[in-house]
């Protein structure tokens, strides 16, 4: 059992919600699909993937072989995140950048204390967190910024390769432009790195 794979930490939080609140929350999720509203998530730069899933009380998956159906009073909201760094760093950063949006989403969960002050918020997350039993990451040695930088550098390099037909003066200019763009995005990520606790 591990919430950690390489540089990534996987967090699962499941909180109960009154059923009538799900409709409101679903509207909020629709609004959040507008890309301009995701700039805070982008600015965090350490989240590989994140997702929220509402499991309606009467829509837990049901297989014909099950002797009885699941029957619950509450709907449940599951939040999952894959991020780089430790749990504490993540919650601190998540909370300071996304405080308002977190409140908008978790406000509908039962007994949510609000994102400020931080201690009750962390207590709430801890209380509702479920540990991961199996965790796979395709590039465990690379943080999100490593991946984004690698993609940028490789794409720019492919453009540079197309310019090798240019005359010397032009190619020199193109090469220097590539170098300036790439110099802060270089390195060799992907190794095991230091162990996270």
């Amino acid at each position: 059992m591990s919430n950690i794979r390489g540089k990534a930490y996987g967090m699962n939080v499941i909180t109960p919600m009154k059923r009538w609140k799900t409709k409101i929350l679903n509207i909020l999720f629709k609004v959040l699909t507008i890309k301009a509203l995701q700039k805070d998530l982008h600015s965090l730069s350490f989240i590989h993937f994140a997702r929220w899933t509402v499991i309606p009380s009467k829509k837990f998956p049901n297989f014909p072989e099950q002797p009885t159906k699941e029957f619950l009073k509450y709907d449940y909201m599951m939040f999952e995140s894959n991020f780089n760094g430790s749990w504490n760093e993540y919650i601190d950063a998540f909370n300071s950048v996304l405080s308002l949006k977190l409140n908008l989403i978790w406000f509908w969960s039962e007994n949510y204390p609000g994102s400020q002050p931080l201690t009750p918020f962390k207590d709430y997350i801890t209380h509702n967190q479920i540990y991961t039993d199996y965790y796979y990451m395709a590039y465990p040695g690379s943080a999100v910024n490593d991946v984004k930088n690698a993609l940028d550098v490789h794409r720019s390099f492919q453009d540079l390769v197309k310019l090798t037909e240019q005359d010397d003066a032009q190619f020199d200019k193109s090469f220097n432009k590539f170098f300036v763009g790439a110099q802060n995005k270089l390195g060799a990520s992907g190794s095991l790195g230091s162990e996270m606790t």
Binding site: W52, T53, L151
Partner: peptide
């Protein structure tokens, strides 16, 4: 059904592995 999904890097798996 996933209510809201967010993915930060935009490369597919093969492109990402090659880029790394």
């Amino acid at each position: 059904t996933t209510s809201f999904l967010y993915v930060e890097a935009d490369g597919d798996l093969q492109e990402t592995l090659r880029a790394l």
